[in-house]
Nucleic acid binder design. Structure first.
Lengths: 229, 229
DNA sequence: GGATGTCCTTGACCTGGGTCAAGCCTTCGG
DNA sequence: CCGAAGGCTTGACCCAGGTCAAGGACATCC
C-alpha cells in the first residue's frame, strides 16, 4: 500500500496531492496486470474507466481493414491512457496493447468522476494532461500531413535526444524498428532504407538500437525544412 | 447583455449552468470581432486565453515551411478553441484564422482558471470537450495515415450527410473545395480529379457546392475499405 | 461589357514510398 | 551445434498523388 502511494505521488497527474487525497484515489483504483503483447482494450469497447501505468510499456494504435497499423501513443510508467472514454462518448477510440509485462492502476469511471467533483485542482491537472495530448496529436498530424518520412525520423531522433539523459549525441530506441516505422506512419522496409540513406549522408550511425547523432545541425534542418540546405 | 447570456446558454459547453453562474462567466469574457481572412493567433503565440465563437467560422491549421497547409479543425458558432494553451504549455500549438466575419467571446486565462476552481461541474464539461477533440484527432490521424484520399472524401461526405438536416442524400459544402482539399490533407488539383472520378463511377453528382450522394452503400464501402467491393 | 480576381478543372510529367520477394542476421530451444 | 522463428535489410517494380502549366467558369466592379 505504502509502495503504491509513493508510486502515485511520483506520477505527474497525482503529484502535489495531500496524503489524504492520494488515499481517496488509491481506494477506488484496482491494480491490473498484462502480459507482453496482451490486448488491454479494443477500439469501440465500452470504456469502463482509465489506466495509469505503474510499470511496463503500452501502445495505443489504430488498424486499417487491410491490417496496416498506425501507432498514436507510446506510454510508460506514470502515463495515463483511456481518459477520453471516461469523459465523452463512452467507448475507446483506439486499441491498447502491452508491449512488455505491465502493471497498471485502473480507475472506474463513475467513482472517478464522483471523486473529481470534490477535487477541482485535480481536474485542472487532468485538463493539462488532456491538453498535452492534444498538443502532441497536433504535432503528429503536422508530421503525417506536411513532412516526408526522413523529416519525421529526424524529428523523432531529436525528440529522443531531448528526453534521454546523456550528452544527447547518442540515443537508444525503446521500441523495435518495426514499431518505430508504425509510429512514423510507414513500414519497416522504407524505414530501413531511410536509416541507410541518413547514415550514408553522415548524419547518423546506427548500431542495433543505438543511434549516434553525428550532425545535429543537419538533422535539425532536415526535421524543419525536409532537406539539408 | 441578455442576448449574450441567451447565446451562452445555447452553447454546449455552458449549457445547464444557472443564470448566476452564466453571469460569472459572462463577466470575465470580452467580446472580440474578426474580419474575413483575419488572423486570430499564430502558432507559438502566448496563449492569454481561449475563444468561444458566437457567430462566423474559424479554421485552425498548420503550415509547412514550403507553405503547404493542413487544416486541423473547422469551428462555427458554439465551438470553442485555444483551450490547450490555457491549461498547458502556454503557447498556441497552431494558427487560427477567421473564414468569415466572426464575433467571439474571449476568456482570459487567469480569471477563467480561478472561476473553474469553484465550478467542478463545469470542469467536467471542459474535460468532455477536450476529450471530444482528442477523439476527432484520433480519427483524423487514422484518416491521414491509413486511408487514401477517395476514402477520406467519402468519409467526409457521409459525415456531412449525418450532420446536415434533410434526407441525407444531398449535402452542401460549408467551405470552398480548396479548403476542403487542405482539410483532407491534399491539394485542389487532386481533389478535383477525385470528384471527377467518383462522379464517373456514379457515386455522387457535383453541382458547385452541392453534392448529391447517389450511392450511399458504395460510399460507405469506399470510406471503410478504401474501394468499392 | 470588358477587365480583374478567385476558384476550379484538366493535362503531362515525375517521384516518394508502398508491394512483393529474397536473403541475412540474431536469438533461443532442443 | 543445428534448426526455426523474428526482426531487419536489399532489390526490382509500380502507382497514388504531388508539381507545373495552361486554361475555363463565374462573380464583381467600374
Amino acid at each position: 500500500m505504502e509502495r503504491i502511494l509513493a508510486a502515485l505521488n511520483r506520477i505527474p497527474l497525482f503529484g502535489g496531492l495531500s496524503r489524504e487525497e492520494l488515499l481517496r484515489f488509491r481506494e477506488i483504483a484496482q491494480e491490473k496486470s498484462f502480459g507482453r503483447a496482451e490486448w488491454i482494450f479494443s477500439e469501440g469497447d465500452e470504456g469502463e474507466g482509465f489506466y495509469v501505468i505503474l510499470e511496463g510499456r503500452v501502445k495505443i494504435f489504430k488498424l486499417s481493414p487491410s491490417g496496416k497499423e498506425q501507432i498514436l501513443h507510446l506510454f510508460g510508467p506514470g502515463d495515463s491512457f483511456g481518459e477520453v472514454a471516461v469523459f465523452e462518448g463512452g467507448s475507446f477510440p483506439a486499441n491498447a496493447q502491452a508491449l512488455q509485462d505491465t502493471r497498471a492502476l485502473f480507475f472506474p469511471r463513475a467513482a472517478f468522476r464522483a471523486l473529481l467533483r470534490n477535487h477541482p485542482d485535480f481536474a485542472l491537472k487532468l485538463l493539462a494532461d488532456l491538453s498535452r495530448k492534444l498538443r502532441e496529436f497536433t504535432m503528429q498530424i503536422e508530421s503525417l500531413a506536411l513532412k516526408e518520412i526522413p523529416a519525421r525520423l529526424a524529428s523523432y531522433l531529436l525528440y529522443l535526444a531531448r528526453e534521454q539523459p546523456g550528452d544527447g549525441n547518442v540515443v537508444t530506441l525503446a521500441i523495435s524498428k518495426g514499431e518505430l516505422a508504425r509510429l512514423l506512419g510507414t513500414i519497416p522496409e522504407t524505414l530501413s532504407r531511410i536509416f541507410a540513406r541518413l547514415s550514408g549522408q553522415g548524419l547518423i550511425r546506427v548500431t542495433g538500437r543505438r543511434i549516434a547523432l553525428l550532425d545535429r545541425a543537419g538533422l535539425e534542418a532536415l526535421a524543419r525544412e525536409g532537406r539539408i540546405p
